[in-house]
């Protein structure tokens, strides 16, 4: 059971790193004073409007749409695909998945392909467009590679080297009960899980945090409210 123990440790460490890291970061952002209103205008005049503005940015990327439409498409393919894939993965951790998770199994498979297509486009852009190449750091390629490997191993299991889903589910369910159940030994599955764990663990200390940072981004999240008699203090 050594392999199972190692995998359990990896998953627990990754999940903890994610939870602790993310919490610390969010608390840090929330606690850092923002004494001056810094909205990029025109901006909504109220808090609700500002929250909706942030929500729209998170879901639809309107600023990116205005900036660069091919990039918007690549980013949307990747993020939408990732969202579908994550939704699909819920069935591996929920004993009896709700109907909507079951219904998303088909779209989830499509999501895997969309995600990979988005990643390939983002990678091509980064290497082929001189402007983007010039601003790329080694880690930017690193994240793309990591995501491609995770997605690739996932797709491989979906379409080629089918893994023992029942066994995987039993292993994950066992973790909740602190019980080590044998894990299917497919290399694709092991690679997929280890790489995903690495991604999860590193998210709070990397640029992958950007979605959470956006929630606190003053140019989007602060209202243009100085005329409503509202005094703002950190």
């Amino acid at each position: 059971m050594a392999a199972e123990l190692a995998m359990a440790a990896i998953l627990v460490v990754a999940a903890s790193a994610l939870l602790v890291g993310l919490t610390l970061r969010i608390v840090l952002y929330a606690r850092t004073p923002a004494p001056l209103p810094l909205a990029t205008t025109p901006a909504p005049t109220g808090r609700v409007g500002a929250a909706l503005r942030v929500g729209r940015e998170i879901v639809l990327f309107p600023s990116l749409w205005g900036a660069d439409k091919p990039l918007w498409l690549a980013a949307m393919l990747f993020h939408l695909g990732l969202a579908l894939v994550l939704a699909r993965h819920l069935r591996y951790v929920i004993e009896i998945p709700p109907a909507w998770v079951v219904a998303l199994q088909g779209p989830g498979q499509l999501g895997g392909i969309l995600m990979m297509a988005g990643l390939v486009l983002l990678g091509l852009r980064r290497t082929l467009i001189r402007r983007v190449r010039k601003i790329s750091r080694p880690t930017d390629y690193g994240w793309l590679l990591l995501l491609l490997l995770i997605g690739g191993s996932g797709l491989a299991m979906t379409y080629r080297w089918h893994t023992d889903i029942i066994g995987l589910k039993a292993f994950l369910a066992g973790l909740w009960r602190l019980d080590l159940v044998p894990l299917p030994g497919d290399p694709a599955l092991i690679a997929h899980m280890v790489l995903a764990a690495a991604l999860i663990a590193l998210l709070p200390v990397s640029k992958l945090l950007h979605g959470f940072a956006l929630v606190f981004s003053p140019s989007r999240a602060s209202p243009d409210s100085t005329r409503l008699g509202e005094r703002r203090h950190g």
Partner: peptide, 24 residues
């Protein structure tokens, strides 16, 4: 400055290097 200005902290963390700004 990081401790006193949320914008600075968030902006330094949040960039993914997408290049949307590069030609603006």
């Amino acid at each position: 400055l990081l401790a006193g200005n949320r914008a600075l902290r968030v902006y330094l963390d949040a960039c993914v290097g997408c290049g949307a700004c590069a030609d603006k």
